[in-house]
C-alpha cells in the first residue's frame, strides 16, 4: 500500500465515520420516547460512510496493484501551502481581533495584510486606500442604512 493522497482521503473518511459512530453511541439517552432514538440516525450515517470509505479504499488499492503506479503524496510546503497557511492564519487572527478592535480596525488590518501578501509589498497605495474605504464604508452603510450592527471601534463614539 502506497500512501497516495487518495488513500489518505479514504482513510480520513473511514476514521471520521468510526469516530462519529463512537460519538453517537455515547450520546446521552433521550428524555422522551425511545431513549435510543437520537442515536439511530447518526449510527446509520456512520455505517454508510464507513462502508463507502472501505469500498473506495479497496478500489484504490486494487488499482495500485493493477497499474503498479502510485504517486506518493507529497507534503512539500509548496506555493499553495503557503497561500493557504497565510490566509488561514490571517483569518484566525482576524476572528480573534474582530470583537476587540471593532469591525473597522480589524477588517482594515485583515484586508491590508492579505493585499500585502499577494502584492509582496509592492505598489500598495491603491490597495491601502481601497481597504480603508471598504472597512469604513461598510461599517457606516451597514450600521446606518441596513441596521446591521457591527462591533464598534473601542473608544470611538459612533
Amino acid at each position: 500500500m502506497v500512501l497516495t493522497l487518495q488513500v489518505i482521503a479514504d482513510l480520513f473518511y473511514l476514521v471520521l465515520a468510526i469516530a462519529y459512530g463512537i460519538g453517537a453511541l455515547n450520546l446521552p439517552e433521550a428524555m422522551f420516547g425511545d431513549p435510543w432514538e437520537p442515536r439511530i440516525y447518526p449510527l446509520i450515517i456512520a455505517a454508510g460512510m464507513a462502508i463507502l470509505a472501505v469500498v473506495l479504499l479497496i478500489t484504490e488499492l486494487r488499482r495500485q496493484q493493477k497499474t503498479g503506479s502510485a504517486e506518493r503524496a507529497q507534503f512539500k510546503i509548496a506555493k499553495e501551502g503557503q497561500i493557504v497557511a497565510f490566509v488561514v492564519g490571517a483569518s484566525v487572527l482576524y476572528t480573534l481581533l474582530f470583537d476587540r478592535l471593532g469591525f473597522m480596525i480589524s477588517t482594515f488590518l485583515f484586508i491590508e495584510s492579505i493585499m500585502l501578501f499577494i502584492s509582496k509589498g509592492k505598489k500598495m497605495l491603491w490597495p491601502t486606500v481601497i481597504a480603508l474605504i471598504f472597512a469604513v464604508g461598510i461599517y457606516f452603510s451597514f450600521s446606518r442604512l441596513l441596521g446591521i450592527t457591527l462591533p464598534p471601534a473601542p473608544f470611538l463614539d459612533f
Binding site: Y94, F98, T107, F110, M115, I118, I130, F134
Partner: peptide, 15 residues
C-alpha cells in the same frame, strides 16, 4: 486586479 479583488472577497465572506 486579483490582488485587490480577492482580499475584498474574503472581507465580504466574513462580513
Amino acid at each position: 486586479p486579483e490582488r485587490i479583488l480577492y482580499p475584498l472577497i474574503l472581507g465580504l465572506a466574513f462580513l
